[in-house]
Design a binder for these strands. Structure first.
Lengths: 206, 206
DNA sequence: TAGATTGTTAATCGATTAACAATC
DNA sequence: TAGATTGTTAATCGATTAACAATC
């Protein structure tokens, strides 16, 4: 009985991306060999990763629409998750304007900023509210996910406010390790650090 | 003889971030136990990760300034890496405006866009040039790193142009798997996918 | 000195790869 | 049918954890 492990789940968004792409091109099936090549991994690994879905057909490959659907189910990409974003600077605006989130079930319902000039602006479908409204709206809408897009100095305070308002998962773009209760999930998006890795590999490869 | 593995190197930027933070607070030393707690990993693992640096002192912990310096050396954070960015939309602008890259040795030397309205703008220290200038400038400055911050449709074409101009490493923010020669390094920043993982964990945890 | 903390060895765990029978 | 491709078992590999001697 094939099962999902953490390592597998982490690769599902990547398969999803490729499958959607192939789907757009009108492809109906894809082999583990092909997926493996695009991702630079072994085809056995692909088969193990996708075995739980039971969408593979011998001699033909994986049925793309069925596999897409299965991944959407297991990752919960259909039930839209509403999030609040704090910090409507350029990064916050980039996130608000990014249409790709919709495909992954994320909707940024509202943004917040202390800067009065930013309040009232609308980027994409998202409106910027004054920070003073944060707590009231978060509680009323029972929001669970928060996006921290403020500066380093403000991040911890914003995170505390989110926890206070009942948030359960935080997506942190500030270059800080937030101190939070153990039951709060955090994903740190350390862009600069990720870049540093690329630079490291570049130097090694020469 | 302690050595660096890929897994270790991937965690170095995280240690770096914490060490810099502690350094700012005036701390001189830190124990593996403390670092482990912040990162949510085992203290043995921290000791293994940092053993190659030989900056640990029994009974006292790791000497912060020395460890910071060692990490900077091995990740090449001192020798600044110049990069060109293509796509001066909100994401591109966010990256240009982000001051945190400097700390990791990344300098976005110039940005490029086909949109005439964006050309000439300056975000942070980075100026936006017309795409027609890309090839000439890239070759003249011998740029090796490119940041792809354009839309899905344009990404492959931009990547091809970068490879053509002699780029060796690409940081791709477009939700596409680029087809590139094997010797070109790519780092895909799949933000939406990363978010999906957080949503997955949130659902499991309830 | 006694206690704390490192570096390292050995044990465990989990993830990846290899191989192949099943089968469409 | 023959060939291609899956799902799965066994083998390998690498990373994490446990344990502890060394020592400041």
């Amino acid at each position: 009985m094939p099962q999902l492990t953490i390592a597998k789940v982490a690769r599902l968004p990547e398969y999803y991306q490729i499958l959607k792409m192939l789907s757009k091109k009108g492809r109906e099936h894809v082999s583990s060999e092909h997926l493996a090549e695009v991702l630079g991994i072994d085809s056995s690994l692909v088969r193990k990763d996708l075995a739980w879905a039971y969408t593979g057909v011998q001699k033909v490959g994986y049925h793309i629409p069925a596999t897409v659907k299965k991944i959407e189910e297991v990752l919960g990409l259909n039930n839209t998750k509403d999030a609040f974003l704090v910090g409507a600077g350029s990064l916050g605006q980039a996130l608000m304007g990014y249409t790709g989130f919709r495909e992954y079930g994320l909707s940024i319902l509202a943004a917040f900023d202390i800067d009065q000039e930013k309040v009232g602006q609308k980027i994409g479908d998202t409106k910027v509210f004054p920070m003073s409204e944060f707590d009231r709206l978060a509680r009323r809408l029972n929001i669970q996910m928060g996006i921290v897009a403020v500066t380093e100095d403000a991040a911890q305070q914003v995170a505390d406010q989110m926890v206070e308002a009942g948030f359960k998962a935080l997506w942190n773009f500030a270059p800080v390790f937030l101190k939070l209760p153990d039951d709060i999930l955090v994903r740190n998006e350390n862009l600069a650090g990720g870049f540093a890795m690329l630079g490291y590999e570049l130097e090694r490869s020469v």
